[in-house]
Structures are given as structure tokens and as C-alpha cells.
Write a protein that binds this DNA or RNA. Structure first.
Lengths: 195, 195
DNA sequence: ACCTGAACACCGTTCAAGT
DNA sequence: ACCTGAACACCGTTCAAGT
């Protein structure tokens, strides 16, 4: 740890994120962890927002992997699961991405891949764009909720086996519900009914 | 403005929100606006989070109004539009609600009304609950995006008539797309095809 | 080019003490 | 019961000055 570079800063950011959460990911704490003065970070990144954007990119890196060929609906489902997995892979990952990716989402690779899948499915370009946004909003919203609940539960140290029975225990099934609802909606729009 | 009460505080909060935005809605600025010391606010609200929660409730108050009788899909559409309108009625309204309502959403009236509509439509209770979440996530995500874009545009003071042509100008139509996609998805799940 | 030292202008929250 | 005064423990950001 002699010469600071962007990669070190991002790695340090993810370490703090995973161990202490988004609220503790401050420029000053990050600087301390990197054994550097707070001002040093500003030589590499213009401001905190930009840094968080770069962290978000790192979190979403697994989505660069090409999705296997197949039916459009399967590809879409695959993309959705990958996105959710990437967000869940880091503490507060969903919150960070949805907070910093608000408008940058427009230029994200995931979105483009979803659009292509929808176009191959038969949607017009304009509809495919709107559809991709719809799915993205759902995935982010659901995952932020799921993750915050997970963390609340583990922090609450639930009284023994009193796990929340009132909820479907299988969060993946819950996620899949909305996902399949979306796919069904697209199918209906395409005039398909079978499957 | 002699004796401070919760209502005054909430009204003052909304005033700051509308005029300066969520970032400027701080306990200290609020106190100054109310001609009071910051500590005074803590006699009425335990912390900022709770205060913001109460502000969110005020923003969503219009949704208490009973929704007219009709087909379930129409009721759902009506609820969705009302929610969006309520969020758009205040600067950063969508952001504030989606940030503070993360888990409180579970106990919101809107959600319950959506659930009832979906049950009347024919979904099982468990599916109706999941469906309501799905719709809610979409509405919040879409509206946060829409509102932030609105504010970026008006701040950017677009070079004359160079309004964003690359996007569907009608944001309501964009919103409706995802909404109808959702309704179609539910219909498909119900085994309906007509309409 | 890259970082330190030190400051600036803020935050949310607490709490004794006043009325 | 309700609020003030004053502090505590933080923030993000800037920038002259050092190497």
C-alpha cells in the first residue's frame, strides 16, 4: 500500500461495505482504512458520488458475462437472476446500486441486454425499452426490500426458531413470482397464449 | 408560531422539501425555518427517520380516499395513478417515500387496497400479496426515475427547444406501459385472454 | 504526479439547565 | 411539558503546501 490507485480504493470500499454497510462507507473511514488522508481520495475521484458509481460498476461486473443462447424468456429470466445475485453478493449492494444507478441505469449493459432479448421476443424497440425499465425497477425494488429484511432479521437475532412464518420463506420463489408475471405480461402483449 | 407541535413541523418539512428538495431537508434547517433550536425537534420526534416517515405519510394521504367501485383492473389502475400523482405532487416526493417506506410499505394502506383488488380479481391471497409488491416496486422505481429526470431537465435549462427527443415525451404513456404489462400478467395468470 | 495538513461549512443527536 | 444553549462526534470537500 504505497501508491494509491483507483483499484485499491474500490477494493477498500467493497471491504468496508461488506463488513460495516453502506452507512459506514464514508470518505473519512475509507481514507483511514487505506492509511491515507481524506483529501488523497479526491485526487483519484472528483467526489463521493462518482466513487460510489464506480463501486456499483464493480458490483455489477458479473453481468458482463455473456448470457447463453436460448429462448428470449429464458435469457430474460437468466439476466434477472444474475442481477439479483450480483446485488445480494455484497452487503447493502441493492441499496447502493439503486441509489447511485438511478439515472445511470439508462446506459447500463444489463438494460441493453434485456432490450435485445425483448426485441428478439418480438417487441418493437420502443416497447422493449419500456419493458426493460419495468423489469429493472421490479428487480431493484424487490431486492432492496429482500436484502434489508435479511439484514434486519440477522441483526434482530430472532428469538430462536421464531423465523417469520407470516412470509413465504423462500425469497427466491417470491422473486420469481414478479418475474414470471412480467414475462406473462410480455407474452400477452405479443399475442401468445400457449406454453 | 408559539408552541411547536407535530403538525407545524410536518408543514414546515413539506415547505422546505418543495422549495429546496430532500437534500436540504435537514433537522437544522428545519429548526431555523421554524425559529427554534435543533434540539426542540427531538421533543416531538425521536429522530430524523421517524420525522421523514411522518412526512411520507402526509404525502400519501390522498390515497386514503376510497377508490370508486368497478372492475378490479380499473381499481388497480386507479390506485397506481393516484400513487404516482401523490409522489409527483412534491419535489423529491418519490425519492423520499421510496427511501423511508422501504419496509414500512408492508403496512401501508395502498398495498392493502391493491391486495383486495387482486383478490377480487381472482388471485389467491398469497399471490395477491406478491402481486401488490410487484406493482408497488414498479410504481416507485418508475416515479423516482421520472421525477429525477424532470428535475434534471428543469435544472439543466435545456438549450432552447432541444427537449429530449430520444425519449417518449409522454411520461404518462411510459408509466402506463408497465402498468398494463402488470395487469396483463395477472390476467394471464388467471387464465383470462379476452378484453 | 500524488499526497499531507489543516481548515471550512456543514450534519444528527444528546442533555443539563431553564421556564 | 416544552424548549434553549452548548456541546459531541461526526460528515464531504477544498486547497495551499510539501515531496
Amino acid at each position: 500500500v504505497q501508491q494509491l490507485n483507483k483499484t485499491d480504493i474500490l477494493t477498500g470500499s467493497l471491504a468496508i461495505l461488506d463488513e460495516y454497510g453502506l452507512a459506514d462507507l464514508t470518505m473519512r473511514r475509507l481514507a483511514t482504512a487505506l492509511k491515507v488522508q481524506p483529501g488523497a481520495l479526491y485526487w483519484h475521484f472528483p467526489d463521493k458520488q462518482t466513487l460510489l458509481g464506480a463501486v456499483a460498476d464493480r458490483i455489477l461486473a458479473p453481468l458482463e458475462e455473456p448470457v447463453p443462447v436460448g429462448e428470449w424468456a429464458d435469457q430474460l429470466t437468466e439476466l434477472a437472476y444474475r442481477l439479483r445475485d450480483a446485488l445480494l453478493a455484497h452487503r447493502d449492494g441493492a441499496e447502493l446500486v439503486s441509489a447511485t444507478y438511478a439515472s445511470r441505469l439508462t446506459t447500463s449493459k444489463v438494460r441493453e441486454k434485456m432490450v435485445s432479448a425483448l426485441i428478439r421476443g418480438g417487441l418493437a424497440r420502443a416497447d422493449a425499452e419500456l419493458g426493460a425499465y419495468t423489469l429493472l425497477y421490479y428487480i431493484l425494488g424487490h431486492t432492496v426490500d429482500e436484502q434489508s429484511r435479511m439484514q434486519m432479521d440477522s441483526a434482530g437475532a430472532l428469538p430462536d426458531d421464531a423465523s417469520p412464518l407470516y412470509e413465504t420463506p423462500d425469497t427466491t420463489a417470491r422473486f420469481d413470482f414478479g418475474l414470471q408475471l412480467f414475462v406473462s405480461g410480455v407474452r400477452a402483449r405479443l399475442g401468445e397464449h400457449a406454453r
